[in-house]
């Protein structure tokens, strides 16, 4: 489903010199999987996630999603490919002047859906995330957990094959965190959407992921297998993250 081959991303430091955020990394994520990217701050997990939909363009290496090499696409083709890759953000990134329903409708408007199809799909997505009664509210009238549900509904609306979630629960309290994780798991189970989730908490991995990649200094140091909510860890770094959780 998602194949990152030898992707490398470096950023120019403001003070000069270069910083290798992702180093020559290869990763394969299977269709229908909930895959975690875990590591401490600065490990390169968000950059790696953003390479999947080319919000960051790799300096070299290839990004293949759903059988297409994204790095070779034209700008218009990439936009169409992105409509198949939903994204959920830590800070929700909803449009403040659009209602909940209009936020969820946004990706469908972009994709050129008809008004009737949009209305029907928005209603479906509101139901899926349990916000049918909030359609006409504005984001400022919602709690953090509700905002993230809108974010998930928006990502889900165009029926993508992949949803990328960048620390989707890091701005939320523990109880809300669990409900958002359950929501993502529900979507994965019902619609077979492949979910890639970035987190710094082992709890998130144990709770919903099938597998995870542990990152450190821009490299995958261990692939973690989750069985019955238990993570088998070999590296010292993985063990230390397990202890924190």
């Amino acid at each position: 489903m998602i194949h990152l081959k030898n992707v490398h991303k470096r950023f120019r430091r403001p003070e000069g010199g270069w910083f290798d955020a992702v180093r020559d990394t290869t990763l394969h994520i299977k269709a229908g999987e909930i895959f975690g990217l875990i590591g401490f701050s600065g490990a390169g997990k968000s950059t790696l996630l953003r390479l999947i939909n080319l919000l960051e363009r790799p300096d070299h290496g290839s990004v293949n999603v759903d059988g297409r090499d994204l790095t070779g696409l034209s700008a218009a083709e990439l936009r169409r490919a992105r409509q198949n890759i939903g994204m959920v953000f830590q800070q929700f990134n909803l449009m403040a002047n659009r209602t909940v329903a209009a936020n969820i409708a946004f990706p469908l408007e972009i994709a050129g859906w008809s008004r009737a199809d949009i209305d029907q799909r928005v209603a479906e997505c509101l139901d899926i995330v349990g916000l049918a009664d909030r359609a006409g509210h504005y984001p400022s009238q919602l709690s953090g957990g509700q905002k993230q549900r809108v974010g998930i509904a928006r990502a889900l609306a165009p029926r993508p094959h992949v949803i990328l979630a960048d620390e989707p629960t890091s701005a939320l309290d523990p109880k809300t965190t669990q409900s958002i994780l359950d929501c993502l798991q529900d979507i994965n189970a019902r619609f077979g959407v492949t979910v890639v989730i970035v987190t710094h908490e082992m709890h998130v991995i144990r709770s919903i992921c099938h597998r995870a990649a542990l990152l450190d200094a821009g490299e995958v140091v261990e692939l973690l297998q989750v069985t019955d909510k238990q993570v088998a860890a070999r590296s010292a770094l993985a063990k230390s993250l397990l202890e924190v959780a």
Binding site: L55, L78, F89, N93, F106, I110, P158, L164
Partner: peptide
């Protein structure tokens, strides 16, 4: 306008 909102639109494939 928060940069993240524009980025979200980019990620959704907005022109």
């Amino acid at each position: 306008i928060p940069r993240g909102v524009i980025e979200a639109a980019e990620a959704m494939g907005a022109s």
